[in-house]
Design a protein around this nucleic acid. Structure first.
Length: 651
RNA sequence: GCCCGCAUAGCUCAGUAGGUAGAGCAACUGAUUUGUAAUCAGUAGGUCGUUGGUUCGAUUCCGACUGCGGGCUCCA
């Protein structure tokens, strides 16, 4: 018997008898065998040790590739489980997949694991790798597998097998004493895993992700193809930590939070300056796009939320209170209030589309464990707006919105946007026909703009499907910010109507939309994106004028007045300190421009300008600087003067 | 909400095998007038998150509460 093996590059090779991935790799080169971790056989991933006994097209998966890393990480999870079983035999293993950057394994054990156990577990994992246990795939009968796992006290495993589809092949992997149900593929032996892994976190996780189930203990780890990659990843984590907006906000004095108001923000002058800059920018942009700004009550009788359906779906998460025997709720959303504004007076089709915008202050009683700095709050403000229009107008409105959103993101320095379409959830209002139309409309709008988008079935809002717009920051993280939701239900529920061309009353379509999402959260994202050094137009303090000797105080004050009068946010630092001390302090505060003045500058009418991030200075006249700064105050201005400076500046 | 961890001066942190705490920075006072990432000296600053318990005695040990941090999304 011969087996014909076809490679991705079109070459082929025949073997006289069934061959394993290892043999195939070896037949090409020894180094390829060493690098390989699995083999794709007719689009299915196999172990390297599994025999290929029919003509096949194959592709060797090496450890440096995404798929190769997945195999390594999955193996790391198994080695982790084996180590835990050896050290804590009373533990039950459940599931342990590879995830982004690493892996985890969920364990059931009465006694909690602690971080101190990590060293012990890691060293046992290294032992297991040292032992170089062969990893062997076996195919079992379903009933036998269930019986086996039950007999060794692994009830969770037995449950998983029992729930597998009838036709699923039950494969188990044996390494040393440890046997685990697994689809594979796996490395040929534990030594192939290498040492580039580290246990990182301990967490609770529900069995099958359901909060009604038992809580398991999850151990997270990271694993890589080699030590260098691991080191790089750990360094990257450190970098991300330095950008943490909570840390930076404290250092830069932007805001604080305290026990008495969990999940809510006390904005300090500098943080509020950023907030106002963003709000003013959005206000102007929305006006230019045909929106009218409104404002609606914070406290609204519960009956409105009952009519809108929010009380039914989110009642538990709303802050509500009883006053004079009436039940009120603090608004968790703005939409029902916007419908009330729409409902005032009889509307004509001529008035549509009507775009009502509000910087809507909302409060939601988020789970305490979900709160996270500015990223997840209980009190926040949305750049919210609702567009009331006819069904015919939806397409154009959605398209215009997407263009608008792109412009805004660009001004904030985000060029990469990701798109997701979320469709009808199980718990919803509205007819299936409405949902069909709404979903199709959104999909069409995305396609019309030639955008790549992902489908998220079942993730829509309860009243309609939505497009979610996410942006990617400079270190690769993705943040969902914008949203566009079609709503065929709420206007009818709340009695919104307009008189159409035909003289009859019609229910308008309502589009819910936001670009930044929550202003607070968006500021958090901006802080992390820029590591606290916000672009000039957003910086709370744009320029610090600092004196070198007190004889220059008067001149410094004159410059300060001039810049302030021109609308630049300036601080004057005439403290009796050395210039290096002041420069250090303002640099740590990430002030975009430090203008130092001594007697020389006072006499010449100049400033010694030092830009954030640069060690160099350049002399500049006051008017010259002012012209430059006014230009940089434009939203979206990209500061490339730094590059020019490093290239051509002399001290 | 649930699991694990954490809570000491304005900030970052040390400490007490149970005997009411200490450093650096910041603040304040004084000296210094300084040329681009920390000038020197002094002073002041804490109910050791809240609350119960154990104890002669608790910031320290135990419990509860509150808040914060990580996770609970990636499905053998």
């Amino acid at each position: 018997m011969t087996v014909q093996i076809q490679f991705p590059d079109g070459a082929s090779r025949s073997f006289d008898e069934p061959a394993t991935g290892l043999q195939i790799a070896e037949s090409i080169s020894n180094s390829l065998r060493k690098k390989s971790v699995a083999i794709r056989v007719n689009s299915e991933l196999w172990d390297l040790t599994r025999e290929i006994d029919a003509d096949s097209s194959v592709e060797l998966i090496t450890r440096n590739t995404e798929e190769g890393l997945e195999v390594i990480r999955h193996d790391a999870a198994h080695v982790l489980a084996e180590a835990v079983k050896e050290l804590f035999p009373e533990t039950q293993v459940t599931i342990g997949p590879a995830v982004e950057n690493g892996f985890y394994y969920d364990f059931a054990r009465d006694e909690p694991f602690t971080q101190e156990d990590f060293a012990l577990i890691e060293s046992r994992m290294k032992d297991i790798i040292q032992r170089n246990e062969e990893i062997v795939r076996e195919v079992w009968q379903r009933n036998e597998a269930i019986k086996y796992f039950k007999s060794i006290g692994e009830d969770y495993k037995a449950e998983i097998i029992a729930d597998l589809p009838e036709d699923e092949i039950i494969s188990v992997y044996r390494q040393g004493e440890f046997v685990d149900l697994c689809r594979g593929p796996h490395l040929p032996s534990t030594a192939a895993l290498g040492h580039a892994f580290k246990l990182t976190k301990l967490a609770g996780a529900y069995w099958r992700g359901d909060a009604n189930n038992a809580q398991l203990q999850r151990i997270y780890g990271t694993a890589w193809a080699n030590d260098q990659q691991l080191k790089q990843y750990l360094k990257q984590l450190e970098e991300a930590e330095k950008r943490d907006h909570r840390l930076l906000a404290k250092q830069l004095g932007l805001f604080h939070m305290q026990e008495e108001a969990p999940g809510m923000v006390f904005w300090h002058p500098k943080g509020w300056s950023i907030y106002q800059s963003i709000k003013q920018y959005m206000r102007q942009a929305q006006e230019a796009h045909g929106y009218q700004e409104i404002n609606t009550p914070q406290l609204v009788d519960l009956s409105l939320w009952e009519k809108s359906g929010h009380a039914d779906k989110f009642g538990e998460d709303m802050f509500s209170l009883q006053v004079d025997e009436r039940n009120y709720a603090i608004k968790p959303m703005n939409c029902p209030c916007h419908v009330q504004v729409f409902n005032q007076g009889l509307k004509s089709y001529r008035e549509l589309p009507l775009r009502l915008a509000e910087f809507g202050s909302c409060h939601r009683n988020e789970m305490s464990g979900a709160l996270h700095g500015l990223m997840r709050l209980r009190g926040f403000v949305q750049d919210d707006a609702h567009i009331f229009c006819t069904e015919k107008q939806v397409q154009t409105e959605v398209a215009d919105f997407i263009t608008f959103l792109h412009d805004v993101y660009k001004d904030f320095g985000f060029d990469e946007v990701l798109y997701k379409l979320s469709t009808r959830p199980e718990k919803r209002v509205g007819s299936d026909e409405d949902w069909d139309r709404a979903e199709a409309t959104l999909a069409q709008a995305l396609d019309d703009q030639g955008l790549d988008w992902d489908l998220q079935p079942g993730e829509g809002a309860f009243y309609g499907p939505k497009i979610e717009f996410s942006l990617r920051d400079c270190i690769g993280r993705v943040w969902q910010c914008g949203t566009m939701q079609v709503d065929f239900s709420m206007p009818a529920r709340l009695g919104a109507e307009y008189v159409g061309e035909d003289g009859n009353k019609h229910v308008p379509v309502m589009l819910h939309r936001a670009i930044l999402g929550s202003l607070e959260r968006f500021i958090g994202i901006l802080i992390e994106q820029h590591a606290g050094a916000l672009p000039f137009w957003l910086a709370p303090v744009q320029v610090v004028i600092t004196t070198i000797v007190s004889d220059a105080d008067d001149y410094a004050a004159m410059v300060f007045d001039k810049l302030t009068a021109a609308g630049i946010r300036v601080e004057l630092d005439t403290r009796n300190e050395k210039i290096s001390y002041k420069v250090r302090e303002h640099s740590l505060q990430k002030i975009p421009v430090i203008a130092a003045v001594g007697m020389r500058e006072a006499q010449e009418g100049t400033l010694a300008i030092r830009r954030f991030g640069s060690k160099n200075q350049s002399a500049m006249g006051v008017d010259e600087l002012l012209a430059l700064l006014i230009q940089e105050s434009q939203p979206g201005y990209v500061d490339d003067s730094l590059n020019e400076q490093t290239a051509g500046d002399t001290k």
